[in-house]
C-alpha cells in the first residue's frame, strides 16, 4: 500500500519577475510505500526539497497531482498523519524544549494536558534531551536542534515521517544517534521518507529508494535491486597450503564448480562474498558523472 502517490508533478520557478522560468521538477511520478524507510536522493538542485514541499503543501505545483492515504487533497485530517522535519532546524528560539513540544503538540493532537506532558517527557527521553528540557532553543547545538526537531515531528504519532536532510551538519556521533532513532521509528510501524546526501547512511537505513535526476525520476525501487543488478561478481577467498588466494566468479553456478575444484585440491575455503559496489559508487557513476560530462557543476 502506498501512503503518498505523486503523479506527473511539474514545478517551475522564476527568480525575478523579468527572469526566465526554470523547471525544477518535470513530470515526476513516484510513490511512498507504507511500512518502510524510503531514501530520497539526488544531486544538489535535482528538486528534492521542492518535491518534498509540494508533498507537504508548502509549494503549489504547476501541474500533476498528489494522493495522500487514498485522498486527493491535503486536509487537516491528513496532516495529522504526517510529521515533518525541515532541512535546517528553524524553530522558535525563544521557547524552551518543553514549551516548543507543547506548542506543536497542542496544535497537532487532541491529547489532554496530562497525556501531552507524558508524551513530551517520553519523547525528550527518547531523543536524549530530557536534561535540556528547560533550556531555550537558542542555547541548543545543531545536533540538539535536529533531535528536538525529530521529537516535534513525532509528537502527534504520525503514520508517515518526512525528513529533509536530517543527518546533514551532524558529527558522526549525532548521525549515529539519529540513524538509530529513524530505525526505531520504522520499527514502531511508521513509514519514513527522507532526503540525504549521506549515501553511506542512506544505504544502511533504506530498504527503498527514490532517485531524482534533473527533476525527473531516475530510479524507484528496493535499494538492493540497483546494487545487486550491478554486481554479478562474487569473491572466493581460500588457503592453498599457507598461501591465501582470491578468485572472482560471475554467478552461482561458477561458485559451485569452483568450490568443488578447490575442495578436491584440499584448499580451505575462507569466505565467499558478493563483491558489491556501494550506493555512493553507484550514485557517483550513474547520477553525478553523466551530469559532469555534460559540463554541469554539482559541487
Amino acid at each position: 500500500m502506498n501512503l503518498v502517490e505523486v503523479h506527473n508533478l511539474t514545478k517551475s520557478f522564476k527568480r525575478h519577475f523579468w527572469s526566465e522560468t526554470k523547471k525544477v521538477i518535470d513530470e515526476l511520478s513516484f510513490d511512498i510505500p507504507s511500512g518502510v524507510i524510503t531514501g530520497f536522493l539526488g544531486a544538489n538542485g535535482a528538486g528534492k526539497t521542492t518535491t518534498m514541499k509540494c508533498v507537504l503543501g508548502l509549494i503549489f505545483p504547476d501541474s500533476g497531482d498528489i494522493t495522500y492515504f487514498g485522498k486527493k487533497s491535503l486536509t487537516t485530517e491528513i496532516k495529522k498523519k504526517i510529521g515533518f522535519l525541515p532541512e535546517q532546524p528553524y524553530f522558535y528560539s525563544y521557547l524552551t524544549g518543553v514549551e516548543f513540544l507543547k506548542f506543536y503538540g497542542e496544535i497537532s493532537t487532541k491529547l489532554t494536558r496530562r497525556d501531552l506532558l507524558l508524551r513530551i517527557d517520553y519523547l525528550l527521553k527518547k531523543v536524549d534531551l530530557y536534561h535540556a528540557k528547560d533550556k531555550a532553543l537558542r542555547q541548543y547545538s545543531k545536533g540538539m536542534l535536529q533531535k528536538i526537531g525529530f521529537a516535534q515531528a513525532l509528537i502527534h504519532e504520525p503514520e508517515l515521517l518526512i525528513l529533509d536532510e536530517p543527518l546533514s551538519g551532524l558529527d558522526p556521533d549525532g548521525r549515529h544517534y539519529l540513524n538509530e532513532l529513524i530505525k526505531e521509528t520504522a520499527k514502531e510501524g511508521r513509514s519514513v521518507f527522507f532526503s540525504s546526501h549521506l549515501l553511506h547512511d542512506t544505504e544502511k537505513l533504506c530498504e527503498n529508494l527514490v532517485i531524482l535526476k534533473d527533476g525527473r525520476l531516475f530510479y524507484q525501487g528496493p535499494t538492493r535491486n540497483i546494487l545487486d543488478n550491478l554486481n554479478a561478481k562474487y569473491r572466493i577467498s581460500f588457503l592453498r597450503g599457507h598461501q591465501q588466494e582470491t578468485i572472482f566468479v560471475n554467478n552461482q553456478d561458477e561458485i559451485q564448480s569452483h568450490l568443488k575444484d578447490l575442495l578436491s585440491q584440499d584448499c580451505i575455503i575462507e569466505e565467499v562474498e558478493q563483491d558489491r559496489i556501494t550506493l555512493e559508487e553507484y550514485f557517483v557513476k550513474n547520477v553525478l558523472e553523466k551530469k559532469n560530462e555534460a559540463g554541469l557543476d554539482h559541487s
Partner: peptide, 14 residues
C-alpha cells in the same frame, strides 16, 4: 525569513 513557517504550516491548521 526564519523558515519557522515550514514546520507550522505542515501542522493540522489552515
Amino acid at each position: 525569513d526564519k523558515k519557522t513557517i515550514l514546520s507550522i504550516l505542515t501542522r493540522p491548521l489552515s
